[in-house]
């Protein structure tokens, strides 16, 4: 075959095919692993808090800080489309908070979290909450380097949310029903139906109830946090990160 003049090259000449099989989010995953290494080196438990907008993530964090700050050193990374209102609320409790303003981006990614980490004194933190952008779709796909995923479902939403947003609820280590003090005036949210929808996704993800306004009740939440920090399940570094979708299947297989 002539290799000099190009006479053998026709529009049908075969293209060169490169087989890849590479995770599309492998660069994000690489940075997430780096973040996780930072957390582990400083013995920081990192929790990614997700929900739809207005489910009460910041309010739960405020109540958590008040309850735990005497014995647990807490910091918060706040993700929002615009404004630093939530970070201001957190700082008012004397806790370091770094605001990530995502602009048009609907989720946090590992790089944005990594940049925020440089503004936090990791050596002086036991528990880091990463409050993701309010969104039940996009945040589920991005590993941030967290050890645990927690998703809030407020009782002012539909109790079929786990069935409507299976990807994010599957990725959760814990589902928190929030604003349960409103259940008495809401006749269309049934916690049992929410639990059934969650169970339909497989696995044994726990669901607990919280309220922080009219009749504060966060004991179950604090107990879960304590178990992650100190209990038998507390050696969080040995427990595989649960199903953030960007973690390759090989690392998920033990879950």
């Amino acid at each position: 075959m002539c290799r000099d003049c190009g006479c053998s090259l026709t529009p049908e000449s075969p293209a060169r095919i490169v087989e890849v099989v590479q995770d599309l989010l492998c660069e994000n995953d690489r940075i997430a692993a780096h973040n996780r290494a930072h957390f582990d080196a400083h013995a920081v438990l990192a929790i990614n808090l997700m929900s739809s907008p207005g489910a009460g993530k910041t309010a739960l964090l405020e109540a958590t800080i008040v309850a735990l700050r005497s014995r647990v050193r807490i910091a918060v990374i706040e993700g929002d489309l615009a404004t630093d209102n939530d970070a201001v609320r957190i700082r008012a409790h004397g806790v370091p908070a770094v605001q990530i303003t995502t602009g048009a981006a609907c989720h946090l990614d590992a790089q944005r979290v990594h940049e925020a980490l440089h503004q936090l004194p990791l050596a002086a933190i036991d528990l880091l909450f990463i409050e993701n952008v309010g969104n039940l779709v996009c945040p589920a796909s991005f590993d941030l380097g967290q050890h645990r995923n927690v998703t809030l479902l407020s009782v002012t939403e539909g109790d079929d949310k786990p069935a409507k947003y299976p990807v994010i609820f599957r990725a959760s280590d814990l589902v928190v029903l929030s604003k349960t003090d409103l259940l008495e005036v809401l006749d269309d949210f049934d916690p049992q139906r929410a639990a059934a929808a969650l169970r339909g996704l497989g696995g044994d993800t726990a669901m607990i109830c919280t309220a922080v306004r009219r009749a504060p009740a966060i004991a179950a939440w604090l107990a879960w946090l304590d178990a992650q920090l100190h209990g038998r399940a507390g050696d969080y570094r040995r427990v595989p990160v649960r199903r953030p979708l960007s973690v390759p299947a090989a690392r998920r297989s033990g879950v």
Binding site: V18, L25, R170
Partner: peptide
């Protein structure tokens, strides 16, 4: 309910088909 998803979570690049620079020119 103790199930594991073994297929359906994929988000990956499988294959890229490239046209060599000289071939592209000839075509």
């Amino acid at each position: 309910y103790r199930t594991r998803v073994i297929c359906g979570e994929e988000l990956r690049l499988l294959r890229v088909e490239l046209r060599p620079a000289d071939a592209a020119h000839a075509v």
